[in-house]
Nucleic acid binder design. Structure first.
Lengths: 359, 359
DNA sequence: AACAATGCTGATAGCGCTAACTTTATGCAA
DNA sequence: TTGCATAAAGTTAGCGCTATCAGCATTGTT
């Protein structure tokens, strides 16, 4: 049964053709060969000025758009950067991913995000899947890949960037900071502020949380204040209400608890609310230090001490490293420590914080 | 110059071959034709049990992974769902995207996210780009697409789902709820709670915010309480600190302000902190209602009234609609109203909230 | 018995693009 | 003049997969 639709494009369409203009249509209109069009689009410097203009004109006239799948198949290289994160609904990863997108705004590279759910097996599966697409680059959170995954990545044939941690022997490249040092610095701050029974509150306890806790422990050991009963953790994912619950637990165990280093700002906020609810004075009776320094920490009352972390910058730098490698620029440092910054605020100012800040 | 590497795979590799096993390798090992392998992988019911077993064995032995680009090129259909959101760093979109990923966990479909930055031009560019890949489906936030975009989408040739709003004439399909009704319901709650000078605090004022504000205005008009000076908005993106600043502005303009409906929970939290800072009693002197009902709203002190919105469910349902359409199931409703729910809490309990909740 | 309908498998021919090589034109030193 | 770079364009042959059609049993129908 043949149907005739006068509104169909003029072009005679083969049985399998997609109907949209191809590089051959552009070439015909411009009066050049298809490969010239291909070159003019990928690297204009390969083609003389006149032909380049002809091609550009034909492209515009036809609204031609290269078929990314055909391109990827022919060149065995997809214009894709694959990104693996353990979790999607966390500000930390959201900021990081925003950095990635922003650093790609002027590029044709696409992003594909995979969600490992903190599982090395899932991570391995996703690495396999993404590498099957021959991406232009791979960015993954953390340094705790399984050893088969590491093997896959070393043979990936594309730039690989590990992010959000620090380590001197990256698989390929790395951007991040030391969670151990950050946890240690936060705890030292509490020690210097005059707190003596400093608790740790943590949820989920993924590898990065573990390292922050290790930093906490080291700082307290060095100060001669470490006591394992000061640690309150749970494998449950983090949330604001959970912060309050963990504080209750910690206080039940140690009545003399006088400060908490919270594994992240959500927990810290929950702790602050619980203190308000129990009329526990912050920072006098209890000091609070968070982690990540979300903007709500400076808005809170009292505003909360936290560790500022380079989430957005990590995303940007990771992409820039991939892009530099792809453009064949001279190799720079393979690892980049973006550091962290302790942002001291009222919630840990034991000695001199006013009870009410005047309006 | 020929190099010999004994560690190379046995297979003689052509100049352009990617080196990984192809469907032909699998076919040879299984002793069947390539097309049979293709069928066995795409739809096992097309192939007899014996051959299916042979193929599965060969696939496992070779660790064969189909080349998605070749597949997309040959079938002119990519195994990709494209998702367009205005923003990446917002819990609303993060929850929504998590719903999308979760609903695709058992599928080979990939997700590609585009970021429109609240710009219809950018949205149009991205729609053009994504459609150029012939995705299996397209999901986009909102109902305010430009008219060229609408035209592109109507001719997309793939399922299109608009999400996060409600409208009876979707381009194709739709999942969401009415922001107008939600804003109206929140405001009516404040009216019923006994507040009389109810302000609106909003940031960025994207189309959804505008509709919530329109619902606010309608509710106050119906109650005979509308006064345009009660509205405080800014085009600045939303944040917690901004909530406090906008409250200050609103109070400077109307000293008798006794409640605020905040366009989102970030602003509401900022308002709460500012009240704490100024020792303004909540809910007695001022009532606060947020929007989205993040989990921190129930942890806050006092806990904050908010409108629960189906962010995660919207993502899940949108994907399910796409998948049902792809599998050719009988057409169901083309639009789905997931509704919202007002979650009343202490922050608007003017009459009977205790000043301090006992621990 | 003749015929169509059905189920399974295979052969062929692309999908739209680019890698690799070839050809042609041009410049310039020997 | 020859020879040899170099640049700019074109020709050829895939990349790895699937749409489409054809073949050939097997089954059911008249």
């Amino acid at each position: 049964m043949e149907e005739l639709d006068v509104n169909e494009p003029v072009k005679k369409m083969g049985r399998r053709s997609s109907g949209r203009p191809t590089i051959n249509d552009v070439a015909r209109l411009a009066g050049v060969s298809p490969i010239t069009v291909s070159r003019a689009l990928r690297d204009p410097s390969l083609v003389s000025v006149e032909l380049r203009r002809l091609v550009d004109g034909a492209v515009a006239e036809l609204h031609y758009q290269p078929n990314v799948n055909a391109r990827a198949l022919a060149s065995s290289r997809a214009d894709v950067i694959a990104v693996l994160v353990p979790l999607l609904t966390n500000i930390v990863f959201a900021d990081f991913i925003r950095g990635i997108y922003d650093a790609l705004d002027d590029s044709t590279l696409q992003v594909q995000i995979g969600n490992t759910h903190y599982s090395p097996q899932e991570e391995e599966r996703l690495v396999r899947m993404f590498l099957g697409q021959r991406p232009s680059g791979l960015i993954l959170a953390g340094i705790d890949q399984s050893s088969p995954t590491v093997k896959l990545l070393k043979a990936a044939g594309c730039p690989v960037v590990q992010v959000m941690e620090y380590h001197e022997e990256p698989i390929d490249m790395l951007v991040g900071f030391s969670h151990f040092e950050a946890g240690k610095a936060a705890t030292e701050h509490l020690v210097h502020a005059g707190y003596r029974r400093i608790g740790f509150i943590g949820a989920r306890m993924d590898p990065r949380s573990q390292r922050r806790m290790a930093g906490y422990q080291r700082a307290l050991e060095e100060a001669g204040m470490f006591d394992p009963t000061l640690i309150t953790t749970t494998p449950t994912p983090s949330s604001v209400p959970l912060g309050g619950e963990l504080l209750a637990e910690a206080l039940a165990r140690n009545h003399d608890l006088d400060a908490v280093f919270c594994n992240n700002d959500d927990l810290a906020l929950g702790v602050l609310f619980e203190c308000q609810r129990r009329a526990i004075s912050v920072p006098h009776r209890i000091g609070i230090c968070g982690f990540n320094d979300l903007d709500l920490m400076r808005a809170a009352h009292p505003c909360v001490t936290s560790v500022t972390t380079p989430r957005y910058e990590t995303g940007r730098h990771a992409v820039q490293m991939v892009r530099r490698r792809l453009s064949g620029e001279t190799e720079e440092a393979r690892y980049l420590d973006l550091g962290f910054r302790l942002q001291a605020r009222e919630s840990t100012a034991r000695a001199f914080a006013p009870r009410w800040k005047p309006a």
